[in-house]
Design a protein around this nucleic acid. Structure first.
Lengths: 217, 217
DNA sequence: CCGAAATGTAATCGATGATTACATAACGGA
DNA sequence: TCCGTTATGTAATCATCGATTACATTTCGG
């Protein structure tokens, strides 16, 4: 069984063949498989992704030079979905001032992070592929950061903040939101009651506390 | 070469043998090797740890049932060092009120996390061994959390806090400190200038901002 | 219509976690 | 002191994984 009959002159494109030799869009399917594996909490291996795409173990390397590249591509896709959701939430929210916008941003951020923990992990950790492996990811991330920091800068310009040290407030805001997301991700919330949604309500509370802490009385 | 000469009656204990057949304290050496590998940013593999201990690839499995157990033991050791340093910092600090103690705690925490990033990662992430793999680690961690939350509870009892929602403040405090540590760990601080110590000073600033935000005016 | 480029397959390699059978040292009771 | 039980390390082996190479098949443009 070293090869299927080498000289079988079958009709080209045999109409409804089980699976054509060429896959169609293997690259995309591999990325989706990688994201799905991550979401299931499983190890993401190139072979397993290939297995899910019903393709040989070497096939993925036609589309990605190595495992890192596959992970980076998966991270880019996850990041894209992340951004879409956050920007949607921001555009839906009424422009009720910078601090309200910061709250809306933080809430959308945390909600997505808590509902897609494995994807958030891939995006934020930079431990799944070589650093700087994806310029797109780096750029997207920078834009998200600029977005938050811009919101807080706006608040400062409008004289809404108590402290004059804007940089410090920006870092603290990012650390608070990121830290909350990571605490959830890293299992620091002990199954907070059976009640689902308790964590999201706590996220709101923490955001409100932060805003009350930095806002001018 | 199926076996070495089976019946070589060599002298018992050949005086000043290069390395005795038994290692002495292989378990400890393996844990140290694992921590050192992590600190070097390398993958921690059982084989590499064995290699550093100059021992066969199967030897570690006499001391740890599997890789997870080795990682868990390494995490316990790292956590022990972490606690020692934090408790030292707290006992050295004058008991100048709960908020000052919170500051001292947060600073010691962040300093250690920033100077031992790989070890902090192993401790905090729970992604390097099966969850609940180490009861000691879980207990130690719970005690550290209780320590911080106790400090803030004390502040609340003494009427030092602006908000009455203690739980919210405790979570926010933990999220802020943890988030700052993780941001550093996950490469969210773009090599903040050449100047070393800039991050630690920013850590102080963020802690002060938080305390100012929750303290009664 | 045909040849070059793209894409998938098969075979193979080195490293790793893990298990098993075996060898050797250490320890403790008779 | 001797001997056997136990602890500990070695050697050999396996399955899985990332990666590379040679080869097969399909697709597409001139």
């Amino acid at each position: 069984m070293s090869a299927r009959q080498p000289s079988k002159p079958r009709a080209r494109r045999p109409a409804a063949q089980a699976r054509p030799y060429h896959h169609g869009d293997l690259r995309r399917v591999l990325i989706d498989a990688a994201l799905q594996l991550a979401a299931e909490g499983a190890e993401v291996s190139v072979r397993e992704a290939a297995r899910r795409a019903a393709v040989s173990p070497g096939a993925p390397f036609r589309h990605f030079p190595n495992r890192d590249a596959l992970m980076a591509a998966a991270a880019e896709e996850a990041q894209r979905r992340f951004r879409v959701e956050i920007e949607a939430a921001l555009s839906e929210a009424p422009p009720a001032g910078p601090l309200a916008r910061f709250r809306a941003f933080g809430l959308a951020y945390l909600r997505w992070a808590m509902r897609n923990p494995a994807h958030f992990e891939i995006i934020s950790t930079g431990r799944y592929f070589a650093h700087g492996s994806s310029a797109e990811l780096t750029r997207d991330n920078a834009e998200l950061i600029a977005l938050t920091e811009g919101i807080l800068a706006e608040a400062a310009e409008q004289g809404l903040l108590r402290s004059a040290d804007l940089k410090r407030i920006q870092i603290a805001g990012r650390a608070l939101v990121y830290g909350f997301a990571r605490m959830n991700l890293d299992g620091h919330f002990p199954r907070w009651g059976v009640e689902e949604g308790a964590i999201e309500r706590m996220a709101e509370g923490v955001l409100d506390l932060f805003i009350a802490g930095i806002a001018k009385p």
